[in-house]
């Protein structure tokens, strides 16, 4: 039995796989410049020199020329004479094979991708070699207005959207420049400049209920890849203190909490940054009757109010 440990940045593992990829690559060309190798394998020229110097010592006893990796360095260029057994790269590691399959399958799962195009064919070949092509599946949802928003982002068209804000529990209409449409942690987002708030905001595409063209276009600009899967508290985010029963411990594991303390009676006191009152209402309704807000005092009644609001639907 072998234990596959959690992957750490094992420099030797990465270096080894890279070396075993570089050597066949040079061998196939007979010669290459350090710079070409550096670009191809994401290294600096100095790193390439260092790795190749090591490789030049490698081979089989009795280290006769036909059994040794022979590298001849001439200025910035290296010529390789590689024994037969190192002229082909090794199989992909499980981590690399999985990474490739996951990336390809994810892109194929994007609505509108070509199920029989080059990527699909590449995935078939890769899956065949790895022996598991049909055993890894990636599903992405396809919210109704995804296509319209992706088209608008690609054409730099300003649109008007109807949007439901879950943290405030309100519906709004706003003009938005859709800068980037992407999926993260199971949801599609449009990262867009909102004309109403004069800021770049993340909108969940499944909460967009209408997209209307405005006839205006916007200047394209690049945005950083946002990390939106989790709500990130900012300096102005309100913090509440909530007391939970023991079975509410999942709250501390699920949301960005700023402090957890276990009380003598087994209950938990949790400090929690909230994105809006509706977020807190949902959380309290889910945990149930024994959860209560301790601080701030003016929010102490929020659980009761939320329960009464929902209860009104049942009467």
């Amino acid at each position: 039995m072998s234990v596959t440990r959690a992957r750490r940045i094992t420099d030797y593992g990465t270096r080894l796989r890279r070396l075993l990829a570089i050597i066949p690559w040079i061998a196939a060309r007979k010669a290459a410049t350090f710079e070409e190798i550096a670009i191809r394998f994401g290294l600096t020229v100095a790193e390439v020199e260092n790795e190749l110097l090591l490789a030049a010592c490698c081979g089989l006893p009795p280290y006769s020329p036909d059994r040794l990796i022979e590298l001849i360095v001439d200025e910035d260029r290296v010529t390789a004479d590689v024994p037969e057994y190192f002229r082909r790269p090794p199989r992909l590691s499980a981590a690399d094979g999985f990474a490739l399959l996951a990336a390809g399958k994810a892109l194929l799962a994007v609505p509108g991708s070509d199920p029989s195009g080059p990527l699909a064919r590449a995935m078939d070949k890769l899956g065949g070699v790895l022996g598991v092509g049909d055993r890894v599946a990636v599903e992405l949802d396809a919210p109704e207005h995804l296509d319209a928003l992706r088209a608008a982002a690609a054409a730099h068209d300003t649109v008007e959207i109807d949007y439901y804000s879950a943290s405030r529990d309100e519906a709004t209409t706003r003009r938005v420049d859709p800068l980037l449409v992407f999926t993260d942690a199971g949801h599609w987002y449009v990262d867009g400049y909102c004309h109403r708030t004069d800021a770049v905001l993340h909108f969940r595409v499944d909460r967009v209920s209408a997209v209307r063209p405005t006839g205006d276009s916007f200047e394209p600009r690049t945005v950083d890849v946002p990390k939106v899967g989790v709500f990130h508290p900012g300096p102005d985010t309100p913090v509440v203190t909530v007391e939970l029963p023991k079975r509410g411990a999942w709250v501390a594991e699920t949301y960005p909490v700023e402090g957890v303390r276990e009380l003598k009676n087994g209950r938990l006191r949790v400090q929690l940054a909230i994105s809006g009152p509706a977020f807190l209402e949902r959380l309290l309704l889910r945990v149930g009757p024994t959860a209560k807000v301790v601080e701030p005092k003016e929010m102490a009644e929020i659980a009761q109010q939320a329960a009464r609001k929902v209860l009104a639907r049942y009467s």
């Binding site: 596959t4 959690a6 992957r7 590691s93 499980a94 981590a95 094979g97 999985f98 990474a99 399959l101 996951a102 990336a103 994810a106 892109l107 994007v110 790895l130 022996g131 598991v132 055993r135 890894v136 990636v138 992405l140 980037l180 449409v181 992407f182 999926t183 993260d184 942690a185 690049t222 890849v225 990390k227 899967g229």
Partner: peptide, 21 residues
């Protein structure tokens, strides 16, 4: 290219994948 998707990769995945294949 602009990013289109982000997928979480957790430590257990390569080993599970190795078991599958």
């Amino acid at each position: 290219l602009p990013p289109l998707a982000a997928l979480p990769v957790i430590d257990a995945l390569p080993a599970l994948f190795d078991g599958c294949r």
